[in-house]
């Protein structure tokens, strides 16, 4: 990602490569690699399909930088029975749609499927995910990620990893 400046165009190809890299990092639970992908902003899993005012609604997750760090520490610290070991996951990210573009910034919507395995049983989640990405001198960074789970306002199961 050398030669990137804050107003470099982020191509669809570059954005997709970034999202696939993030997906791979999350399947490996490599939070030390995931946290630096961020540049401020919130990691949000809202409840309901139409919510946009996340701060004034109850979310499944609404993490600023400090909460992301605390969550990563919890999931990797070995003191959380649900994450020691966590469910194993395999995910695919696809059906990319650019919804906003500006110099040095792109908003991209994608489809996410995650299959988890624990205790010999498998569960599946599907979500529409929106990433707001910016160009920095260190490469592409995330300024907001919204994971809209199907059935977010219905019955879920406990989740010991990140989407």
């Amino acid at each position: 990602m050398k030669d990137m400046t804050t107003d470099s165009k982020i191509t669809l190809d570059a954005a997709v490569q970034f999202l696939w890299m993030e997906a791979d990092i999350l399947d490996r639970n490599d939070f030390d690699a995931w946290l630096p992908l961020w540049h401020g902003g919130h990691y949000i899993i809202p409840i309901g399909d139409d919510v946009t005012d996340f701060a004034n609604n109850l979310n499944i997750a609404y993490d600023d930088a400090d909460m992301r760090k605390a969550r990563a520490a919890r999931l990797s610290g070995g003191f959380s029975i649900s994450a020691a070991p966590p469910a194993r996951t395999v995910r695919t990210v696809s059906r990319f749609v650019i919804t906003e573009e500006a110099p040095g910034a792109i908003t991209i919507r994608s489809a996410l499927h995650v299959v988890e395995d624990k205790f010999g049983r498998q569960r599946m989640f599907a979500a529409n995910v929106e990433h707001k990405l910016i160009a920095t001198e260190n490469g592409i960074r995330i300024t907001q990620k919204v994971v809209r789970l199907l059935n977010s306002d219905g019955m879920l199961t406990s989740i010991s990893y990140l989407f």
């Binding site: 499944i60 969550r71 406990s158 989740i159």
Partner: peptide, 26 residues
């Protein structure tokens, strides 16, 4: 005040809280 109530709730409760998933596990 309500925002803080919701943030405190999100911290411990629910499918991805810092508490409930460990309860669910045991």
């Amino acid at each position: 005040a309500n925002q803080m109530r919701m943030r405190l709730h999100e911290h411990f409760q629910g499918p991805m809280g810092f508490g409930s998933p460990d309860d669910a596990e045991v």
